[in-house]
């Protein structure tokens, strides 16, 4: 029964990791910007929801504030940090260091405003109920899983059928050719940041209502997202999604054999094994295209 319990928890965690990792993969795949501050977007979205909800304004205003904050933050970083660096022909590493620095600044600002201790939003939906003998599931876990799947399916539909979606896939293939086609790479880059940042919001909100928050939450989520992007195959959204579910399950099922503090090590052991066995990732370009 413990294995079933951990599998269900792992699926919920995997779904939430998938949203964050797919957002990162979409941004990195389309723009080739190593947006390490994506974890800061997650933390910011989660704490904005927490602040509005804790102030008594309710769920919907909290959700809207979270979406607005995440999208504005993603667009602002693209516009005010990454583009000036790229305009001056700054290297990939310059962008990465800038992004890493933003993550640390945001983490510290959150610590200053909200404190460094653990905070959470309590809701009747977060209370676990016994669904099978010895298996406890909170309604929020099921809701989070379904919402994450709907978001991922909607993203897939968006990328296949809309002008912007096809444009983002094109930008991922060949940025120079995008201009030859007459498409606007700046618009597409902004769209990638807006959509990728918006994808973290459901994950951030459900995390604040279930496992809770601390200022370093974005760092942990970003490490998992990064690992999922590499194992899934750089730029492959389906691959990233599958890898995120693998990590969510592995992190939780590892508790059958290891202490909780080793769960992150399990994720990285899988990452190293995957890199050695399949360097291009599960569905990386050399394998899938």
């Amino acid at each position: 029964m413990l294995a079933l319990q951990l599998t269900l928890t792992g699926l919920q965690a995997g779904a939430l990791y998938a949203l964050t990792a797919v957002g990162f993969s979409l941004i990195f795949g389309s723009t080739r910007v190593f947006h390490f501050a994506h974890g800061a977007t997650f933390a910011l979205a989660a704490y904005l929801f927490y602040a509005v909800e804790a102030a008594g304004y309710g769920f919907v205003p909290g959700l809207l504030a979270s979406f607005a904050g995440a999208i504005a933050f993603g667009l602002a970083i693209d516009w005010f940090i990454y583009r000036p660096i790229q305009r001056d022909e700054g290297s990939f590493f310059t962008v990465f260091v800038a992004s890493f620095g933003i993550g640390i600044v945001v983490q510290n600002l959150i610590g200053i405003f909200f404190g460094r201790s653990f905070v959470t939003i309590t809701s009747p939906l977060s209370r676990a109920r016994e669904v099978l003998d010895g298996v406890y599931v909170a309604p929020l876990a099921g809701i989070a899983f379904v919402v994450a799947l709907i978001c991922l399916l909607a993203l897939g539909f968006f990328l296949r059928t809309t002008f912007t979606g096809k444009g983002l896939r094109a930008l991922s293939d060949d940025p120079e050719l995008v201009r030859v086609f007459g498409l606007n790479p700046r618009y597409l880059s902004a769209a990638a940041f807006a959509i990728g940042s918006a994808l973290v919001v459901p994950a951030a909100v459900f995390t604040s209502m279930s496992s809770g928050l601390n200022p370093a939450i974005g760092h942990h989520v970003m490490l998992i997202s990064l690992a999922a992007t590499i194992v899934g195959g750089i730029g492959s959204i389906p691959g990233t999604m599958i890898a995120a579910f693998i990590f969510g399950l592995a992190e939780n099922l590892s508790l059958l054999w290891f202490e909780p503090q080793w769960s992150e090590a399990v994720v990285f052991a899988i990452l190293f094994a995957a890199i050695i066995a399949r360097p291009s990732g599960l569905m990386g370009k050399s394998a899938a295209r």
């Binding site: 002008f163 096809k166 896939r169 050719l177 086609f181 498409l183």
Partner: peptide
């Protein structure tokens, strides 16, 4: 209109999607 050097198509898109994107851009 420019036909660039090399394969001037987006490899992850179908031919019809490449055409769609060209029509959308125009």
């Amino acid at each position: 209109a420019l036909v660039p050097e090399g394969k001037g198509v987006f490899p992850s898109l179908t031919v019809a999607e490449n055409f769609d994107l060209g029509l959308d851009a125009a």
